[in-house]
Structure formats: structure tokens, C-alpha cells
Design a protein around this nucleic acid. Structure first.
Lengths: 220, 220
DNA sequence: AATCGAGTTTGTCAATTGACCAAGTCGGGT
DNA sequence: ACCCGACTTGGTCAATTGACAAACTCGATT
């Protein structure tokens, strides 16, 4: 399921049916294969040949769609990561934070569920949190900073209303992010080590409830 | 401070003072420089030339102490990571877990403080949590699994005593690990983004208290 | 002073890698 | 039938990299 293959796709809507060459379809296949390989191996260790092979193409072909490996990586992240930020922006639109705990209860579980649903993307983000790379700054500027700017008022309001156990907003926020990235980005490891499947629906719910506990609960 | 230089080291205790060649000293310098470069760039992106340069030596010289780049990496982790596991093992020795919340309050803050004190090593661990590499299995076998085996009874007992907000022990454990790795492994990022210094003593205390809140607090 | 050997440098090598290009394939419009 | 152009392949290239080895530097031993 990980590598989208050109052949079997049925695009019955439109009349166009090129049996053999379908650029748009192969482009998607490359993006999907690249997400898998990047998530598994990391940017450096993921060779363009391995990505092409996972997509069922030749290495030289990648250059047709993507000017460079770095550009491919960037488009992979953009293609899959917008969801979270858009969801967040829409959910916070026009909220005056007069009842921050209600806002948080409405917004944050959905955000965490985005991570749980996209383990490959979650790993990709985790990688950029663990290495100083030319891509690190880009991720921070493009996603990290905007998301934090979006959520900082919420976390500040939460603390002002006696949540977060009195911790600084940033501490609570990065606690949440770290817990989510590790928990949902390491399903295989956690399953192997502890026999606990963090991809399973019930466990996802339990994990989200646990992560958000100190955020949503009133101070003792 | 990051690169230990051979020259200036004053070893006034012993009589030995080889002005120019000091193998053991340079070996330490390489390990320290390697820790820095590996933590910053990740294993693949960290070239042996960069490591040698950071240690003030030539690339070819590394082979004198370490048979390969992978072996160097492994010795770096071993040299710096034993502290945590040993501390944990000693602290849990002979504990019958009849009062798990007391045990946790005695043991876990110290464990988290090991992460806070060693940001470079923390980043290194974070990297191996985010990539499937030949080193991943080794870290899991050598540190991940033993530590989990050590702590699993404690977390199981905590839950049996009404802590963890009813979450599975593994969820609570990896929540803790993820929060610690991200919080203490990204001091620069968090400082830049949110103006919060997770290397500062007071913030470390606040973060540890926050992370351990659900672990130590009784169920509502 | 001659030798020894741990420590260190310099130069080289094969392998891998990302970028690039010239040629080829194929469906569709003319 | 023919060509056009989107799409795809296979091969090449320069750069980087980890490993390796031969030569060099000294302090210490004899």
C-alpha cells in the first residue's frame, strides 16, 4: 500500500486513459514513495535510487518532476503537512479564548489525531527535531513557528486559568509535541518492546487523553 | 568548550607530561568532538573529516583509535550513556514496589535530570528514535529494552495504585521519554521560538514536575 | 647515539551519490 | 502516415566519503 503503482489506478472519471505514461500519477507515486523512504531512513541515508525503486521508476526520472533531492523532500512535507496547520487555523479562527479549556478540548485532540493518523509524516518531523540540517530551519519557519504562534495564546490563557499545573506555556506545548511525536512515530518500536500498539484506535484515545490530561485538568 | 584540545590540558597530578603526543587525551577529544558533531548533524551527515577537524586532528588519525565510523559512534554512546542506566539500576535495586509512588518520586526525577544535563546525548538518542538505521536495533537492545524492563514493573505498579490516569504503562512511559527528549534535546529551538530556556535550572525543575505530574499524582 | 614504538600526518582508493544529458517510447493531433 | 511533445530510460560525471597504508615525528629505552 505504501508505493502507489502507475498501472492499477482507475481514473474512470475523465476520458483520458494513457495506458502507459501517466505523469501526474507517477508524480504522486514518487511523493508517496519518498515519504516512506525518507521517514524510514532519514534524508541523508535515503538515496534517490532507493526512492525511485520504491516508486517503480528509474533514478534519472526523478529529475523530471523535482529539480533536486532537497526540493523533492520539501514537496513531500508540503504535500502532507498542510492538513495539520490548516485544521488548526480554521479551528482557532475567531476564538476569543474566554474559555480556553473549552477551546483546547475542542482543538487539541484533533491535532494529536493528525499525528496518530500519519506515522510516516510524524517520523519525518521527529527527524527534523533531532538534527541541525539545512532543512531544519525551513521546517521551523514553515510549520513550527506558525503553529506555535497559533497555539501560544491558547496555552498562555490555559495557564492563566489555572491549567498546565503552573508550568510555562512553552514547556507544556513541547511536552505535548514530544509525547505525540514519539508515541505515534514509533508504533513498531513500542509494539515490539512493550506489546502496546499505538496505532490501535483505543490506544490512540488513551494516549491522547493522557497527553492532554495536565492541559485540560484544573489545578489541584 | 566542546572540543577538548590536546595542548592546553594541564595534567598536573602525574609527572608524565608529553608536550606533543598524548594518545589517551586525544582519544577523549575525539569522543567528545564526535558526540558534538553526531548530535548536531546525525550519523550520516557527520563526516569523519568534520569530526577530526572538531577534535583538532587529521581524518586519517581516527582509524588509529577506532576501526570504523560506526565503531566510533558506538563507543561515543557507550562512553556517555551508561550513567543513566547504572543510576536507574542502582536506584531500583531491592525495591519491592509496595509504595510505587514513593519509588517513582525518588527515581524518575533523577533520570530526567540525566537528560537535562546531557543535551548532546539526548539529541543522539532522539535521532535513533526517528530513523531505522543499523544502529537503531543496537540502541534498543543495549539501552532501550533494559531500561524498559527495569521500569515496566514500576509503571505497572503505579497504574495498579491508581496513577497514570488509567493509561497503559507503556503509554505513560513513552510519553515521559518523548517529552524529555524533545524538551531537553531542543534547548536552542525552544529558546529561539518561545524564549524559554530549558537548560536553565528553574525551567528544568518546572519541566520535570510537569512531565511527572500524571505519573505521581493520584487519580482524580 | 641508535633503536623502538606509540602517535600522527599525508596521500590514495573504491564506492556511493545527486545531478545531468542524450536518446528512446508512445499517444494524439494533423 | 507523420510529427510533436509529454514522459521515461540508461549512461555518465564530478564530488564526497570512509577506509586504508606508507611515511614521518618524537620521547623513551637501551
Amino acid at each position: 500500500m505504501t508505493l502507489g503503482m502507475t498501472v492499477s489506478t482507475t481514473k474512470s472519471a475523465k476520458a483520458r486513459r494513457p495506458q502507459r505514461y501517466d505523469g501526474a500519477d507517477n508524480r504522486r507515486a514518487v511523493l508517496d514513495a519518498a515519504l516512506t523512504v525518507f521517514a524510514d531512513l532519514g534524508f541523508e541515508a535515503a538515496s534517490t535510487r532507493a526512492i525511485a525503486a520504491a516508486a517503480g521508476l528509474e533514478q534519472g526520472h526523478l529529475a523530471y518532476y523535482f529539480p533536486s533531492k532537497a526540493a523533492l523532500w520539501q514537496q513531500v512535507v508540503e504535500a502532507f503537512a498542510r492538513e495539520g496547520e490548516d485544521l488548526l487555523r480554521a479551528a482557532l479562527e475567531g476564538d476569543d479564548l474566554s474559555r480556553p479549556e473549552q477551546t483546547a478540548a475542542r482543538v487539541l485532540p484533533g491535532l494529536l489525531r493528525v499525528f496518530a493518523r500519519n506515522p510516516r509524516l510524524t517520523r519525518l518531523m521527529l527527524q527534523e527535531f533531532s538534527v541541525h540540517s539545512p532543512r531544519h530551519q525551513w521546517v521551523v519557519d514553515t510549520f513550527g513557528a506558525p503553529v506555535w504562534r497559533l497555539l501560544e495564546p491558547l496555552f498562555a490563557a490555559l495557564r492563566a486559568h489555572g491549567r498546565l499545573s503552573g508550568a510555562p506555556p512553552a514547556v507544556a506545548y513541547f511536552n505535548l509535541v514530544g509525547a505525540a511525536l514519539i508515541t505515534f512515530g514509533n508504533r513498531d518500536l513500542i509494539l515490539r518492546l512493550a506489546g502496546c500498539d499505538t496505532g490501535e484506535e483505543a490506544t490512540v484515545d488513551a494516549a491522547i487523553a493522557y497527553i492532554l490530561g495536565p492541559v485540560l485538568a484544573p489545578a489541584p
